[in-house]
Design a protein around this nucleic acid. Sequence first.
RNA 1: GCCUCUGUAGCUUAAUGGAUAAAGUAACGGUCUUCGAAACCGUUGAUGAGGGUUCGAUUCCUUCCAGAGGCACCA
Length: 621
Amino acid sequence: MLKLLQKLQKRDEFTSYQKEVELSIKNTQKKIAKEQKQKLPSLLHNPLEQIKLEIVKCLRECFNANVDIVNEINIELPPSHIEADLTISTFELSKILKSDPIIIAQKLAGTINQANSSLIAKAEIINGFINLSLKQSSFYSSILREINEQKDAFGSSDINAKKVAVMDYSSPNVAKPIGVGHMRSTNIGQALKNIYEKTGYSVVGHNYLGDWGTQFGKLIYAYQTWGDKDKIKQNPLNELKNLYVKFHEEAEKDPKLEDKAREIFKKLEKRDKELLSLWKEFRDLSIEGIKKTYRRLGINFDLWIGESYFNERSREIIQECLDKKLGHQDPETGAIVADPSDNLPTFLLQKQDGTTLYSARDLANLKLRLEKFNPNEILYIVGDDQKLYFSQIINIAQRLNWFQNNPQIQIEHIGFGLVLSDGKKMSTRKGSLVELEDLIDESVNQAEKIIRQKNQNLDEKNIKEISEILGIGAIIYNDLRQSRTRNVSFDWDKMFSFEGGSSVYLQYTYVRIQSILRKIAQTPKTPKNIRFENAIEFNLSKKLAFFPFVIIKAEKFKSPHLIATYLEELAQSFNNFYNEIRIIETQDQDLLNSRIALITSVALTIKNGLTLLNIKTPKRM
RNA sequence: GCCUCUGUAGCUUAAUGGAUAAAGUAACGGUCUUCGAAACCGUUGAUGAGGGUUCGAUUCCUUCCAGAGGCACCA
């Protein structure tokens, strides 16, 4: 009886939330277990993989190499001035085999030529390069058959089967609206999740919400001082943002406000019932708005566990740091300081007023991930401005011996350049923030304008749907097409480029193919005798064969932009072909069917690639 | 002050030690009575500056210059 009473007394806004979290962790564990049992598509039917394996076999024959060299074979398309189908450079091999590249090239090319391969016609050497000429028709029919069989699965592989990765992305602060800066973490994170899964990984997507901390003290203070309940009910997100900005404006004039905010947060950490219910209200309102934006962008997570969940656990972590002498209490202030090694600067875990800091909660978060998912990788997809912070955290976790059960684990901060406005970092506090929702609306409007201008045959409903697809795609693509590390300057005009080098270019190419397939009006079926007539067709098929390997590379370097670059090259190649050859006028039935198989493959690959980047493909536009 | 990242064509970007540095955009010229010209073809145009490492450097090291970010009670 007494226990029940105690339980009831203890029950507050937290209790139900904690239950929710535990359930979502269990569900995620189930999801992983299920995925690990699934059979994944293999690369073995891809002729490019077959060529690679043949070369490895030849290498083993002539060098008795028992080192693992499969992944060192680097097959590429040769530069345009070289007349060959594929090229291998032997420079990397020479380091592994500790031999002269020219000699390797000579020996290897000789062995390949004697091997009587079903795909390779001949190997020639120029310097350290081995240039391969293929048995083109077998290669061509092999890759087209493979793609048309695999369909949406084309691009998948099993090279990372049975591996688990936890990804921390988006993770917005719930007290303020999502800005365009946060968009990068969201887009890059989701794209990396998709890419990882395509190579066989099970991925836990974690939206680590910033739903705790002094910011809530600020927000609650602002609400209590200037807030208006009715206004918040009408337009919650906007009003909360106004309060947040107002607080910072006032705090500029009167720095004492910061102390007041800290005081409120301190009470919140002590579970003051009234404050806690305000906290819950603001949190729920914010999350509702955030989810709306995610729905439009197609972002999904397995876990929504915010910092608040780790509040109490972080106390244990702080104690653990003190016990293991990785932290100390500052004798002057009483704050608790963590002491990383490797010349990294110290950082605070707990403030002098006894409340916890982000770092302590983040360490608790890391521990939970290790315990619940035992992952091979943990990726923090967070801006480069937090690079130092993550090296500090990882250093402490390492020295707390948290990785002893899993020494191979990779914990990485996947940084990226910031979105700059007028050359500077954007900030909610200074009001220089462009809100993501506004940006999306604007882009969708721009798209609609152009669609109306370009295509008069669409009805209203279609126009709305397609504007949404094109407008949102343009924003995401603009974010993902360049390599992660460079800063992005925010430029409205650049966002709405609907020409070459944009998602719209890729979508347009896809739509064109759909249009041809509609005109031909026969169900595409792969013919018995696949053949081609023109070199452009064969080149396209080579490019297609690379798709799964591009995904693998994008996973290895955590670089979604490699997919974008690849798709642009593919689309360009197709458009070239399209301009050269009139597909529907092909007389020979086998050739026509082969061409249908080819363009279907191109369309599938563009669609699968854009899906990885979280961009949709319309049927018409 | 210390540390980190970035610097490629007028502009936005690609190329993670390899062959003649690749695209888009802008400019100029060409291609639609024929599969959707939101496309295609052609011309002009670039590695911030200096040193080093090596068969070979946009890529690695170093000095300088320029921009951005971080460095204790925000997250």
